[in-house]
Simulated assay, not measured.
Amino acid sequence: MTGAPLLKVCGLRDAATAAGAAKLAIDYIGFVFAPSKRRVTASEARDLIAAMREEGGRQRFVGVFVNPSLDELDAVLSEAPLDVVQLHGAETADFVRAFRERHPGVRVWKALGVSGEADHSAEAVASRLAPFAGLLDGLLLDAYDPHVGGGTGKTFRWDAIPAYAAWTEREGIPLFAAGGLHADNVRELLAAHAVGGVDVSSGVETDGAKDLTKIRTFVERVKP
């Protein structure tokens, strides 16, 4: 990895925070459309995107989904101008292929939950991801949770990163690390592993709401 990593802040819901974030060195803003306390509607995301654009924000916008139907994605994209769809469930390569055919201008990231019990050798990872070769624009690693897609505030086994990084390097796509990141541990991650980007959500919240001061501090740690 060369230069500063990409930075995604996920789970924005209110206009004031969005307006403040628009002025920061954030590359991607994530909106959660899956069941979550951070969930937004397509119209809410549309309005937040418009508010950030009015403030001069140049961020790209990511929709986070867990096992959506193609019709659901069609409906959201007809209203909210997303740049990226992040698939955080058990979506198959065939599903990704079908989506790309319907929306060739929208990028696709696949999120994977990293389980401590799974085999994270280079061979196992390459085999697991082989069906997605040539179909993805980014891969995101998060803490595994059997009940929710992400946003748990838990870290995963960072020693699993190199095998996934090798695959994404061959694919020519960025690898994002998520899960339990905050201002006090993100530099440790970046010093130990050459990831292409980081994704933060609960680590920049206070009492369950996005905290612009924490967001600013996190940005400073990632992009000094």
Results as ranks from 00 to 15, higher is better:
A192H: 11
A133M: 08
L212V: 06
A130F: 02
F95T: 00
K8Q: 02
E171L: 07
D211H: 06
F61N: 01
A160K: 02
T213R: 15
P104V: 05
A16R: 14
A160G: 02
V195T: 08
G63T: 00
A75E: 15
L112W: 09
G56C: 03
G138H: 07
A191Q: 12
R216N: 05
T217L: 15
Q86N: 04
G63C: 04
A126C: 02
A34E: 13
A192M: 14
R107G: 14
G179L: 04
V9R: 06
P81C: 10
A122W: 05
G172Q: 08
H193A: 01
R53W: 05
L181S: 06
A194Q: 14
A118W: 10
D47W: 03
Q59V: 11
A166V: 12
R157Q: 13
E54H: 12
D47H: 10
I49G: 01
W158Y: 02
D14I: 11
E55C: 14
F132T: 02
A166Y: 05
D47L: 13
G57W: 03
V114N: 01
G20C: 10
A209M: 12
V200R: 00
V76P: 00
F61Y: 14
L87P: 05
V106W: 03
F31V: 07
F176Y: 15
A51S: 13
G179P: 00
Y28V: 01
P174L: 08
V96R: 08
Q59F: 07
S36T: 06
E220Q: 15
L48F: 04
P162H: 06
G197V: 11
R13G: 01
S121A: 12
D71Y: 08
S78M: 12
V85F: 06
L87G: 06
S121L: 06
K214Y: 06
A50D: 13
V76N: 01
D211K: 10
D14G: 08
D74C: 11
K154E: 13
G150F: 10
F132I: 05
D142P: 07
K110Q: 13
T206W: 08
A166T: 13
N67D: 15
A21C: 15
A194D: 12
V219M: 07
A19I: 15
K110C: 06
G20P: 00
A21I: 15
G30P: 08
F31Q: 04
N67Q: 09
L181V: 03
L6D: 03
D83S: 14
T168F: 06
E55V: 04
G197F: 07
P68Y: 09
D184V: 11
L82N: 03
A50H: 14
S121G: 15
D184C: 09
L70G: 13
M1G: 14
Y28M: 00
A16P: 02
A118L: 04
F176D: 02
D199S: 04
I26M: 07
R221C: 11
L112Q: 07
G20V: 04
S36V: 09
D211I: 10
K154P: 05
V200N: 01
G196R: 03
T155W: 01
F61P: 06
